[in-house]
């Protein structure tokens, strides 16, 4: 199959059982996306498919030819960090760092959802312009767990970038 990841096209031959996460990590050496629970409960494996954030552990690689996948490796580089990567460093938005690539990919997808006016459970009904309060950030990021509980600083980092982009 052919799959596009971070702008590169890869020709790969995979067992049908291979999750997208395992393809990234085990076949392509893109180990930025992390395997936490492998059951869609922790968010460490979050990547962007055609711009939408999803759990890469809960989808099969074979279902994604033609799709455009972006992982943490595709967002920024050590020399040129993505604004969210820089904000996580600035705000100390991690301790062990294992959940961080998933947090950042999720936040990228989440901010795009906010830009589209998508509501969350805590949004004021009937409004299209989402005010990205801390409550909104926490609700929208609830699919990304941090066992070190760096949540306050993660929220600070995301709020910082969202404010700058608004």
């Amino acid at each position: 199959m052919r799959i596009r990841i971070n702008g590169d096209t890869h020709e790969v031959d995979v067992d049908v059982r291979t999750s997208l996460l395992d393809l990234l990590r085990e076949h392509l050496g893109l180990t930025g996306s992390k395997k936490g629970c492998d059951h869609g409960q922790c968010g460490a494996c979050t990547v962007l498919i055609n711009g939408r954030r999803i759990n890469s552990c809960l989808t099969l690689a074979v279902m994604h030819d033609d799709d455009e996948i972006v992982t943490i490796e595709g967002l920024g580089s050590p020399a040129a960090l993505h604004p969210l990567q820089a904000a996580f460093v600035r705000h100390d938005g991690f301790q062990c760092g294992y959940c961080t690539p998933g947090q950042i990919c999720s936040a990228v997808g989440m901010l795009d959802e906010v830009a589209k006016g998508w509501p969350s459970l805590v949004s004021e009904p009937g409004t299209d312009a989402v005010a990205l309060t801390d409550e909104e950030i926490r609700e929208r990021m609830s699919g990304n767990l941090c066992r070190c509980s760096a949540y306050p600083n993660i929220v600070d980092a995301i709020r910082d970038v969202a404010g700058a982009g608004a």
Binding site: I54, G109, L121, G126, G143
Partner: peptide
């Protein structure tokens, strides 16, 4: 859905996470 069936929109948003709802 938001305008005419707000209870459905709320129920969907009460379920799972942003990543799972996208799939």
């Amino acid at each position: 859905v938001r305008e005419r069936y707000p209870l459905l929109s709320s129920a969907l948003l009460a379920g799972a996470s942003g990543q799972l709802r996208n799939k």
